[in-house]
Amino acid sequence: MNAATETAVAAEATGEPEVMLKVENVSLSFGGVRAITNISFDIRKGEIRAIIGPNGAGKTSMLNVINGFYHPQEGVITFKGAARSKMRPYEAASQGIARTFQNVALFKGMSTLDNIMSGRTLLMKKHFFWHLFHYGPARTEEIEHRRKVEEIIDFLEIQHIRRAPVGRLPYGLQKRVELGRALAMEPELLLLDEPMAGMNLEEKEDMSRFILDVNSQFGTTIALIEHDMGVVMDLSDRVVVLDYGKKIADGTPEEVQANQDVIDAYLGVSH
């Protein structure tokens, strides 16, 4: 708590980059289960912000609140200056929020190419009439988007599986395709839910490199949920720690690592 307040004050004093997303006093419960209790934090433009915590801490629920999939009972979320208490996932997507899922949620019956193409949905114009004949603006547009998608395929080094149905790909590659699909939306804020879960060391290193490159090359702001502490410490600019739906710490990786509450939460000290 203390560390967080200090950082916030320091940020204002030094005129740090503007805040992209601000979560204020958000609470979410499912019937009797309180998934999130009165949480506030912010994500600054251009940073990699890690959200960590033990299993069931409410991390995934937090992402679901941010992109409009769950509607919190209390609290306000401000994205790019506009405050809201709830919105539809469609609106979140059109305002520039993309995400990946903890359990890969690809379109299993479609190829890698089509999966990543699907990320372009909102960037495509209607042109329904022209689509009937695959002619004129519809065709030009399809090819334009294909070019963008090929750039992403090159970036993620998945050219060889371009035509493969994603259902047949190994888990590590599926996660990569899912990242590709999110990137295809050209998001301003990218939410990554455990992008490295179940990967071996080499795959984790690749994925870390992609995340850093996305952040530096495209300037995308990233919220990252990750259990691997080494990864979190290396990648993130700031970390927010949740436990049992409450925020227990917020600050730079070093600050958080030294925080007694965090150590207790991870070692399972009784409350």
Binding site: N67, F69, A93, A98, A105, F107, K108, S118
Partner: peptide
């Protein structure tokens, strides 16, 4: 068809 939740979150 394949994943309606993800489809909605993509727009």
């Amino acid at each position: 068809r394949d994943m309606d939740i993800a489809a909605e979150l993509i727009g």
